[in-house]
Write a protein that binds this DNA or RNA. Structure first.
Lengths: 106, 106
DNA sequence: CTGGCGCATCAACGGAAATTGATGCCGGCT
DNA sequence: AGCCGGCATCAATTTCCGTTGATGCGCCAG
């Protein structure tokens, strides 16, 4: 039953990845730490909007923030991505390839 | 720039995975082929709703359908899941672990 | 050929999420 | 101390998506 909590977290992370801007943020963070001002420049989006998306990613545990003076640097959490890969793989590996002649609902 | 098309497909697949019912459908299909009537029973959802979600998954290339008489059997495409895993891994492996003392936007 | 079943499609509704602009907080500079 | 720049938060708006019920199509059984 603690698995239900993990399932919720996985779903939350999948939701966080369902937006183009957030995916682009992650690809930017793959190149290393970025502050919000870097991302507003790279994604051509308002600062308020970026802050909102970063909060979404942070709540999903996909990124981490680090204060440095008046800047906040964001970086991605590789472990969260690895967990998602494991989740997808668990579904894929459980997959039954050939169905043969299967009966249905009659 | 053909990469932009692939990126759109990846994003479409991530959007398809951002709904709980659709994820549950995939976990069901991991156990083998299922017709819509099986899924309505397993997910306790209306037939119309299931058909809608299955279309979303099908458009994303995550599942395939096969007609058998008056039934339509759905099964998941393992290759699409593997592609998503590769996408996530490409971001994760490009990730730079330690930032050291990085300058920002001044 | 006709009735019934499985499924897809459509229009309409409601709610959640994305976007925007304004405002507040915090830390550094002079 | 006072000002300014980087960022978070808030309220309001719009846009998008999940959900529902009704309808239509194709297929098998009688």
């Amino acid at each position: 039953m603690t698995n239900a909590i993990a399932a919720d977290l996985t779903l939350q992370r999948l939701k966080a990845l369902s937006d183009e801007k957030r995916v682009r943020i992650l690809t930017q963070l793959a190149g290393g730490e970025r502050c919000v001002c870097d991302l507003t420049d790279a994604l051509d989006a308002g600062q308020s909007l970026l802050s909102f998306h970063l909060k979404t990613l942070k709540d999903a545990g996909l990124v981490t923030d680090r204060r440095a003076g008046r800047w906040v640097h964001y970086s991605l959490k590789a472990g969260a991505l690895a967990d998602l890969e494991d989740f997808l793989r668990s579904i894929r590996e459980a997959s039954i390839p050939a169905p043969a002649g299967e009966a249905c609902c009659d």
